[in-house]
Design a binder for these strands. Sequence first.
DNA 1: CGAAATTTGTGAATATTATCACAAGGAATT
DNA 2: AATTCCTTGTGATAATATTCACAAATTTCG
Lengths: 211, 211
Amino acid sequence: MESYKIPKRSVERLSIYKRILKVIMDAGFTTVSSSELAERAGLNPAQVRKDLVYFGQFGTPGMGYQVSTLHRAITRIMGLHKKIPVALAGAGNLGQALLSYQGFKDRGFIIESIFDNDPEKVGKMKNGIKIRNEKNSSSEIKDKKIKVGIISTPSSAAQSIANKLIEGGIKGILNFAPIELKVPSGIIVVNVALCEKLEMLSYYLSKRKIL
Amino acid sequence: MESYKIPKRSVERLSIYKRILKVIMDAGFTTVSSSELAERAGLNPAQVRKDLVYFGQFGTPGMGYQVSTLHRAITRIMGLHKKIPVALAGAGNLGQALLSYQGFKDRGFIIESIFDNDPEKVGKMKNGIKIRNEKNSSSEIKDKKIKVGIISTPSSAAQSIANKLIEGGIKGILNFAPIELKVPSGIIVVNVALCEKLEMLSYYLSKRKIL
DNA sequence: CGAAATTTGTGAATATTATCACAAGGAATT
DNA sequence: AATTCCTTGTGATAATATTCACAAATTTCG
């Protein structure tokens, strides 16, 4: 159990398995095979089994996996069995969309602080929280002991707000700004590359003379 | 030039190089080395060179790459030198954020149609475009000859709207819904996994006993 | 209970991706 | 023009990731 070094890709897929397991569970099935999971995730069955074995032996030969047990196990492995307070930096359009994004709530990510540098926005309420000036972000995060931040500011503001968040004790950042944040070691940054994905699409379509 | 099989990852990074080149260009530099690019992108210099060579020989030994030339070349390779009309399905919070997302506009992606199935929303104007009933999406897309679609609906609606978009002639889909879309071969789907990224962050932080 | 049918977990084999290391090309300097 | 200094492009090597293939475990069925 708990192997030495788990591939990043396997961790990413864990999330996918969890999502699919939820669907299967809600459909009333109690067990599922690696091939069924693979089919639904668009992957190879051996890969599904290998991924799961990194975290423990969940399966029963001849039968497959217990859906609810596996779902619960993955939830726990990923640390999603408890609520996670989150700070949001940038209350623009994207930030506001994220604020009301059901997917985050469903998974226990609770946005507890919102920061912006626009005086127009500071002081206003959003989802029951007052938008604070980003100057005060460090201390507020420290007080509230928040460890996860989401950056949805323009690129120009991203690095400086990242620094403030980290100063306040943030250890992980979900970054929507299209820049490579420079952070001290020990801080985890996960980038969401909105434009890049669309550009990729453009590339593949152009290559096929579709665009 | 134009090698047989280009790694998906290299294509993704092309986008990153383009973004960095723009910054370097705006800062007034005319040439850049692979190590400078690598440094800024958080990559290995050899990888940068290998990536670029898939698409042509752009560099000069002893000097590096001509910033503007390379930027223009990548833009063209990715098919981003012309405007690309896009259809948006799902005018919820996320959809509205994407509508006003400057990054898309800057890169020439122009949202020309918006669809939703909520009668409350249908008929209303957004960014100068009338939100249409998603029932009519196929024909409208056909008329407007749109080839790229963005899906920002809830998961439950995603597959059915994807089918309609494809019926109307959409060849590439940027999918924000957390499900694996089933599409005919020849249709390209690029997924943006919002929750999965945040869950990954949760996993790594939990593992380090931070959460 | 025994045989047939599944399906896991996993070592071995492939395939893919990233890095190293260096010859060769070109610029800068003397 | 010769020398030095860079930096590219690339073959070789190393690291990662995926898939195959099968023994072992377990269920199901007769």
